[in-house]
């Protein structure tokens, strides 16, 4: 089996938001919609204060609450772990938005663009009317992954088959791969470092793993 996941090394992330920008370019998301964003956390009290940058987005959970509540079956979980939305079935009830404990889902009812009322060339090219009035979120760049698999490429290794945010990461903080393959890039990282997952106590089984310390 395959289970796609992202490993985010919190020790490497510098909060540059390049992943955010790459994602917004790849998906032409409207203002206010960020499938991939990087939180800027300040932890501790003076004088022991530190800044932590935390990439977040859809966690493509093992037990996604968004899928469980969806009254239309628009939200599905693929065999490879990716949680997808069928924009042609979704009615935009917003139930999945309140079910997601990661605030990863959005609903936009009107076309909006980055610069006033005029779409940029990229926004025009990638505008998809189907996304209006329905739920939307990070897809793990499913189209790129599927394209890569169909062309004998390895997602997470070959850029053409890898999510845009991971490709763009300048500090190599983000890694994409198959956690079911013990020899994969992500499995190796998870063996070498201590990791945690966000809100794991809720039983969702999120598939973004955060590295925070070397096992050495």
């Amino acid at each position: 089996m395959t289970k796609w996941a992202i490993v985010a090394d919190l020790g490497r992330c510098v909060g540059c938001q390049t992943c955010t920008t790459a994602c917004r370019h790849a998906n032409a998301t409207p203002p206010g919609v960020q499938y991939r964003k990087v939180l800027d956390m300040e932890v501790g009290t003076y004088p022991d204060v530190r800044r932590v940058f935390v990439p977040v987005g859809c966690m493509h959970c093992d037990e996604p609450p968004c899928r469980d509540v969806c009254p239309t079956t628009a939200t599905k979980k693929r065999a490879d772990g990716m949680v997808t939305i069928d924009y042609d079935i979704c009615i935009g009830c917003g139930y999945c938005i309140v079910a997601c404990p990661y605030q990863a889902r959005y609903k936009v009812s009107k076309p909006t663009f980055a610069f006033k009322g005029e779409a940029t060339a990229n926004e025009t090219k990638r505008f998809d009317e189907r996304l209006l009035g329905v739920a939307q979120k990070c897809t793990f760049c499913v189209d790129r992954v599927d394209y890569g698999l169909a062309n004998n490429l390895t997602p997470g290794i070959d850029p053409e088959a890898t999510p845009a945010c991971v490709n763009a990461c300048l500090s190599k903080a983000l890694t994409f791969g198959d956690t079911d393959n013990p020899d994969s890039n992500v499995s190796t990282l998870l063996r070498q470092y201590k990791s945690f997952r966000m809100h794991e106590e809720l039983g969702t089984g999120p598939n973004i793993h955060y590295l925070w310390e070397s096992e050495d």
Partner: peptide
């Protein structure tokens, strides 16, 4: 009274030669 879950981390990372630190749940 419908505030969402927000974000949280269990640990702060070790950076460079530093030590890891506590998490935060704002």
């Amino acid at each position: 009274a419908a505030q969402n879950q927000g974000f949280a981390i269990k640990h702060s990372p070790a950076r460079g030669a530093g030590e890891p630190g506590p998490g935060i749940k704002p």
